[in-house]
Computed example of a mutant assay.
Amino acid sequence: MARIQAVTAMTLDGFLPDNDNVSMQWVINHKNGFPRWRERCSAFILPHSILELLCEKDRRDDSFTYLAEIRDFESLELLRGLFHYNLVDELIVYLLPYSIGQGISILNIYPAQQWQLHKTASFSNGICRLIYRKPRKK
């Protein structure tokens, strides 16, 4: 069965950063940001395509990876739908080193679910990348 990754960035206080922010631009364009995951995925998940995904996911093998890139309100709604159907296997979060205190909250859409921290990385600009995976079923 195919794997579904969701990659996003958020501020320290859990808000979706503006795309024109310097740190967010790094995440969008740097080889260690979103492009890293774009290069490795097999297909992108577009907003309003969850029904197609539900039909196709089981037909793919383990090497097939779908990617949902979350960076604006429309794609945040995509993430909400992916969580609703419990489809996200791996969550990649770029934590930006500042808080904004307002805006679109990412944290209020995360489901009550346990995730396992798989890997971390920190970069010289203060951004941290956290990779979480669903716990394996025993």
Score class of each variant (00 low, 15 high):
Ala2Arg: 01
Glu77Gln: 12
His118Arg: 14
Glu52Asn: 10
Val7Arg: 10
Lys138Asn: 09
Asn19Phe: 04
Leu87Val: 03
Trp26Pro: 03
Lys137Gln: 07
Val27Lys: 06
Ala9Thr: 09
Asn125Lys: 02
Glu56Val: 03
Pro47Asn: 13
Ser105Cys: 00
Leu95Lys: 06
Arg59Tyr: 03
Ala121Pro: 00
Ala9Glu: 07
Ile50Leu: 06
Asn108Thr: 14
Lys134Leu: 14
Ala112Asp: 07
Ile109Asn: 03
Cys41Lys: 06
Ile106Leu: 15
Trp26Val: 13
Ser23Tyr: 06
Asn125Thr: 03
Leu54Met: 14
Pro17Glu: 07
Pro17Gln: 03
Asp62Thr: 13
Ser122Pro: 03
Thr65Val: 14
Trp37Val: 00
Thr8Leu: 15
Pro17Arg: 04
Asn125Met: 00
Arg129Ser: 14
Ser23Gly: 05
Leu82Val: 02
Pro111Met: 11
Gln25Gly: 07
Asp13Val: 03
Glu69Cys: 05
Asp89Pro: 00
Glu52Lys: 04
Tyr85Thr: 06
His30Met: 04
Thr8Met: 15
Gly33Pro: 10
Ile45Ala: 12
Tyr85Trp: 14
Ile92Pro: 00
Asp20Tyr: 03
Asp18Leu: 11
Asp72Ser: 02
Leu79Ile: 04
Asn32Tyr: 14
Lys137Ala: 12
Glu39Pro: 05
Ile106Lys: 04
Tyr110Gln: 12
Lys31Ile: 15
Val88Ala: 00
Leu79Trp: 07
Asp58Glu: 13
Gly81Glu: 12
Asp62Phe: 10
Met10Asp: 00
Leu107Lys: 07
Leu95Met: 11
Cys41Asp: 04
Leu117Asp: 11
Glu56Ala: 01
Ser49Thr: 15
Phe83Cys: 07
Asn29Tyr: 09
Lys138Ser: 11
Asn86Ile: 03
Ser124Gln: 06
Phe64Trp: 13
Gln102Ala: 04
Arg80His: 09
Val7Ser: 08
Glu56Gln: 08
Lys137Tyr: 07
Glu90Arg: 13
His48Glu: 08
Cys128Met: 09
Thr11Ala: 10
Trp26Gly: 01
Ile100Val: 13
Asn86Trp: 04
Tyr110Pro: 01
Leu91Pro: 08
Tyr98Val: 08
Ile92Gln: 02
Tyr132Ile: 06
Tyr98Ser: 08
Gln114Glu: 12
Lys57Met: 14
Leu51Phe: 08
Arg136Lys: 13
Leu16Asp: 04
Pro17Gly: 05
Gln116Lys: 06
Met1Gly: 11
Ala6Ile: 01
Arg38Thr: 11
Arg129Cys: 12
Val22Ala: 06
Leu78Asn: 01
Leu82Tyr: 01
Tyr94Glu: 05
Leu53Cys: 03
Leu79Met: 14
